[in-house]
């Protein structure tokens, strides 16, 4: 649905130039929720703005829904943009218009005839759960409600793709959760493809089927979340940070990462029974992610239990000696 290859964007000022996006390839399949994770300054915002040509890339190609955007003339680009919804960290609503007016604005822009707007606005507001606030002004809404208006507006032209620029970063955890649930719901009900950028792990955990970690303008790693968890990935460490000692006298400390069905297998109990070892859990999590169940533990095994570690490896879990 979104194909990016060799994307590069450099910002030049008089004194120096900064490479914001450095040779990034990205492919987002239809119906996928793809998260780009990175700290501020990693270039993820520039990357997202290149997808709908808010920023012109210096090199590389971007195509959305099979349409190559980098080569389009202004007018064609405008039409292409109707098929790409976008939501923003600070909502970017028109303060002079009511909730209904903000959604109607998107319809005016896409050329929906006046007579059809009212019904479509009502339908969109119903979709995001704001049917009763149509006449309120943005300043009278909470952050979560404002973002719902942003989402309704972004969906006005029935886009196939939604770009999310830190859509939950200005919201509290509970509101974040409700917005993420809405996005996931839209993804499933409308088959909406979502490309989002965020610095929040929760977002990736809750809704992303695929993810990339971005640093200094490059993708450090990328792929399906389930696959990333199985490999030696930063994402696994970042999704499940463990704050526990890495060495225990007389014991080997291992980090065990499991995903899919393994996450719910009584693996450690099995280990203890089979090898008659005392497994100590030093820290860990098991959680439900958007695409899979996954967990990560830090455990301590007595020094002479090499067999037990081999057993763990054979089950398909990822086992590393903690350090």
């Amino acid at each position: 649905m979104i194909e990016i290859s060799g994307l590069r964007k450099t910002y030049r000022s008089r004194k120096r130039s900064v490479v914001a996006v450095d040779d990034v390839d990205l492919s987002v399949g239809e119906g996928e929720v793809y998260g780009v994770l990175g700290r501020s300054g990693a270039g993820k915002s520039t990357l997202l703005r290149c997808v709908n040509m808010l920023e012109r890339p210096d090199a590389g190609t971007v195509s959305v829904g099979g349409v190559e955007l980098t080569g389009l003339r202004r007018k064609q680009l405008r039409v292409a943009r109707h098929g790409i919804g976008m939501i923003h960290q600070h909502f970017a609503l028109l303060s002079s218009r009511t909730v209904a007016g903000n959604v109607a604005f998107a319809l005016e822009v896409t050329g929906v005839p006046r007579g059809e707007r009212r019904a479509r606005v009502a339908e969109l507001l119903e979709l995001v759960g704001l049917g009763d606030r149509a006449d309120a002004y943005p300043s009278q809404l909470s952050g979560g409600q404002k973002q719902r208006v942003g989402i309704a507006r972004a969906l006005a032209a029935r886009p196939k793709v939604l770009l999310s620029d830190e859509a939950t970063s200005a919201l509290d955890p509970e509101t974040t959760e409700s917005i993420l649930r809405l996005l996931l719901d839209l993804n499933r009900r409308l088959g909406l493809t979502i490309l989002l950028i965020t610095h929040e792990m929760t977002v990736v955990k809750r809704i992303c089927t695929s993810a990339a970690v971005m640093r200094d303008g490059r993708f450090v790693e990328s792929g399906r979340v389930a696959d990333l968890l199985r490999g030696d990935s930063e994402l696994a460490r970042d999704l499940f940070p463990i704050d526990a000692p890495v060495s225990v006298p007389g014991a080997t400390v291992l980090d065990v990462t499991v995903s899919g069905e393994d996450a719910d297998r009584p693996l450690l109990a099995e280990l203890a029974r089979r090898f008659d070892v005392d497994v100590r859990i030093l820290g860990g999590h098991v959680e439900t992610l958007a695409a899979t169940r996954a967990g990560r533990w830090r455990i301590a095994l007595p020094d002479d239990s090499g067999e037990a570690a081999d057993f763990l490896r054979k089950t398909g879990a990822r086992v590393e000696v903690a350090s």
């Binding site: 292409a80 604005f105 032209a157």
Partner: peptide, 17 residues
């Protein structure tokens, strides 16, 4: 705010709009 203008551009609004 700049992001309000950017949002309008992203929606495909004309300059006149």
């Amino acid at each position: 705010p700049a992001d309000v203008v950017a949002a309008s551009v992203a929606m495909g609004a004309t300059r006149r709009q």
